[in-house]
Design a binder for these strands. Structure first.
Length: 762
DNA sequence: TTAGGCTTGG
């Protein structure tokens, strides 16, 4: 009989497994080996509905977890069961059962990347000579209940249909939560506010004697499924409260993330159609909710001393000196060598009141999220004690509290990878330079500032806003819908264009078009062409400009006219003067633009001066040529300039000049494509920058060798040629995702924003 | 029972 139930008595099967079978551990399962006489044992954590393949074969998929490997990153594996065995298994199997698969075939799992399970799956069928043993406590019960659908059918109530005094099942997206804390009664308490696509809101007060029985919510946006929650009216609003038999599942709310329920319960139902519900809620939340919450800090928990203080690290160095709780070496509970190594990187957090019992129960080495920590700067006039303190004050307002994350959590994996990537030798060397901070104090403000600068070197970029955002892994971002904004920490693997001058474009903010910067030869040709039209003497010397004209002595006998714009009927100092020129060469115009405030190349028509072609600059100022958008501009007569000239102190700002002339100016921008990588994935992000990122004006770089060198050095620092990925520096950036739809093709793009190169990088 | 989101504090 291929599927057998083995009754368990005192923890052992009544009937032993056949003696020829040898146990195989999850971590030893490898492709290319013969598993005819091997068996794998695990706990059933997920059952999919029994289905039929195209050829009519019954097919049943279950997920087994290897409880002996619960600490390792991958501890579950897909089991694909075919034919009669599929049907038999579907009848008897229940979540939490111990399941033994013998004589299976091993094949590469095509879904491993998505579901995060083992890279291989087990294939099981009668034809392959497989056998399945299910270890159960009560065979009689099992046979009695064996039915095509083992799972009871649950009905879920939308949040806008809740009625006082009922007990319901529901789904919701977490809008707010307080991580579990010890209540003043006998239980742990957690408060959770949910929303759903009905747009109704429900705040639930959940009590459980066992911390594990409360929902495992790690962040706002997580999705929960509550079974048997009691609904009551309180202060005119519906309120959820735990009732007997309350049970919950929690899911990551990120679109595309693996759908793995978080629960302490070994017995739960989760079917295919419920997966669909999660996917729908994720999609709804992505486009209808703006997920934001109080700042949460994410730490590796290293030590606690006294009964009130935690010592933690998140892989970075706090940019300010932090207050250290005075502690005797004998009071340290953590791993001493590690604590010593990290002594200048860890921070101490003082924990108060209701958070103390939970803090005391924490295991060293766990990963914590601490919500609503208060940072306190010691008073500035006491420079000797300049430092930052971290307090987790009493109470649970705004979700203040401590959450413990399991190792399987993707954010934990990301943090772990980051911690592993930190070069401790480097950090400690950097520390030894500044002995002042070893005792946690700074003697003056300058020390503090220079310290701050050094710490910023940890990332070669600096964020100019939204510092309260938490980092998101690139994989999570790639799996999410746009538009959203993220803070990331990544390395620059490569960038385009490699020839930096090619990164400069002209951009019209009105029609969003990009244009190549015309080269000097184009301008020269336009000037030569316009010089064939002689200046019209009738247009010289008006009320608002004075004109001079002369003929070159060379063979060409070229006529040049210069019109100096007057102010209060007077000519100004050259450096304040705007002039218009007809018949000049590139070189002459260039020289004039160095000496005079502004130069506008023009040509004569019958009754007015006019601007040249749009491929020529409408204005030259200093080193910069200003161009107009051909598409968006509606040039006005040159006379319009007289209104600016009449102003008391004409500033001759290019934007003002453009405006009166009916020109929509093009702006110089850097456009680059950065390929960013972190431990979780790779992502192409566009840099669209006028000046902020490089702290170099895009308008000036083409004519300034010094700035070109500076930019080259900056890029060499961000992405040093010939270096391995490990040796590249970290970049902290904000990026935003956005959708581009081109016909039927839809794509998500990413752009860097509110990020700048650290001051001391170049 | 507990808390019933909405802080300022050692």
């Amino acid at each position: 009989m291929p599927v057998q139930l083995l009754k368990i008595i005192k923890g052992e099967s009544e009937t032993p497994l056949p003696s020829h079978l040898q146990k195989e551990d999850l971590k030893h399962l490898q492709e290319g080996f013969d598993y005819t006489n091997k068996y794998f044992q695990g706990t059933v954590v997920l059952c999919y509905p029994l289905t039929k393949l195209r050829d009519g074969t019954d097919f049943f998929k279950v997920v087994l977890q290897d409880l002996n490997n619960s600490c390792s990153r991958i501890n579950s594996i897909n089991i694909l069961i075919y034919g009669k065995m599929a049907e038999d298994c579907a009848k008897v199997i229940r979540h939490g059962d111990t399941f033994v698969v013998a004589g299976f075939k091993l094949a590469k799992s095509p879904t491993a990347r998505e579901d995060g399970r083992h890279g291989c799956h087990l294939e099981v069928s009668e034809e392959a000579g497989s056998a399945i043993y299910v270890r159960v406590n009560q065979i009689a019960n099992r046979v009695l209940h064996a039915a095509p659908s083992v799972a009871p059918k649950y009905v879920y109530t939308p949040l806008n249909h809740l009625k006082d005094g009922t007990v319901v099942n529901l789904y919701g997206i977490v809008k707010f939560f307080k991580p579990p804390y010890v209540s003043k009664g006998t239980d742990y308490c957690s408060v959770v506010t949910l929303v759903d696509p009905s747009n109704a809101k429900l705040t639930c007060t959940l009590f459980r004697g066992n911390l594990d029985s409360l929902p495992k919510i790690y962040k706002i946006g997580d999705i929960v499924r509550f079974h048997r929650i009691k609904i009551r009216e309180y202060n005119g609003q519906m309120q959820g409260i735990t009732s007997g038999g309350f049970a919950s599942l929690t899911f990551d709310g990120t679109v595309g993330a693996p759908i793995v329920p978080r629960t302490s319960s070994k017995l739960y139902t989760f079917l295919g159609e419920e997966q669909k519900t999660i996917e729908e809620l994720r999609a709804w939340a992505a486009s209808n909710l703006s997920i934001s919450g109080p700042a949460a800090f994410f730490f590796f928990f290293l030590n606690h001393f006294g009964f009130f203080s935690l010592q933690v690290w998140d892989g970075t160095k706090c940019p300010y000196p932090t207050w250290k709780v005075p502690v005797e070496a004998s009071d340290l509970e953590g791993e001493k060598a590690l604590l010593h190594q990290l002594r200048n990187l860890t921070v101490d957090i003082l924990v108060y009141d209701n958070h103390v019992p939970l803090a005391k129960s924490l295991k060293i080495g766990s990963f914590l999220r601490i919500y609503s920590i208060r940072t306190k700067q010691a008073s500035a006039d006491n420079a000797d004690a300049s430092h930052v303190e971290f307090h987790l004050h009493g109470g649970t307002c705004y979700g203040r509290g401590i959450g413990v994350l399991p190792e399987s959590n993707p954010d934990v994996k990301e943090l772990k990878e980051f911690l592993e990537s930190v070069d401790l030798a480097d950090s400690q060397n950097a520390e030894s330079v500044s002995s002042v901070e070893l005792d946690g104090t700074f003697s003056n403000v300058t020390d503090l500032q220079s310290h701050l600068q050094r710490c910023q070197q940890l990332s070669v970029t600096v964020l100019t806003d939204h510092q309260d955002l938490n980092n998101t892994g690139l994989r999570t971002i790639l799996n999410s819908t746009a538009p959203q904004q993220y803070r990331i920490r990544a390395k620059l693997r490569t960038f385009k264009p490699q020839k930096l001058h090619q990164s400069i474009k002209l951009y019209c903010s009105k029609c969003n078009s990009l244009k190549e910067v015309p080269d000097g030869d184009d301008f020269d040709l336009i000037l030569q062409d316009s010089a064939t039209t002689a200046p019209n003497p009738e247009l010289h010397n008006t009320s608002w400009y004075g004109s001079v004209m002369w003929t070159t002595q060379d063979q060409k006998q070229r006529k040049i006219a210069i019109h100096f714009v007057k102010h209060d009927e007077m000519l100004q100092e050259p450096e304040h003067t705007l002039l218009m020129i007809e018949g000049g060469t590139l070189k002459e115009i260039w020289k004039l633009s160095r000496r005079f405030k502004c130069v506008i190349p023009v040509r004569s028509t019958k009754d007015d001066l006019e601007l040249l072609d749009f491929s020529a600059p409408f204005l030259l100022q200093g080193n910069v040529k200003y161009y107009g958008c051909k598409h968006c501009s509606t040039p006005k007569t040159i006379k319009s300039l007289s209104s600016l000239a009449a102003e008391q102190r004409p500033s001759w700002e290019p934007t003002e000049i453009a405006q009166v002339l009916g020109i929509v100016p093009l702006q110089y921008v850097f456009i680059m494509k950065f390929t960013l990588v972190d431990g979780t994935g790779a992502l192409n992000a566009y840099l669209f920058d006028y000046e902020k990122f490089f702290q170099i004006p895009a308008s000036e770089i083409l004519t300034n060798n010094f700035l070109q060198q500076k930019m080259q050095m900056t890029m060499n620092t961000l992405c040093p040629p010939g270096r391995k990925l490990d040796d590249l520096p970290w970049l902290e950036c904000f990026i935003k995702s956005y959708n581009i739809t081109d016909g039927t093709k839809h794509q998500v793009y990413y752009q860097i924003f509110d990020t700048t190169i650290a001051e001391d990088v170049v």
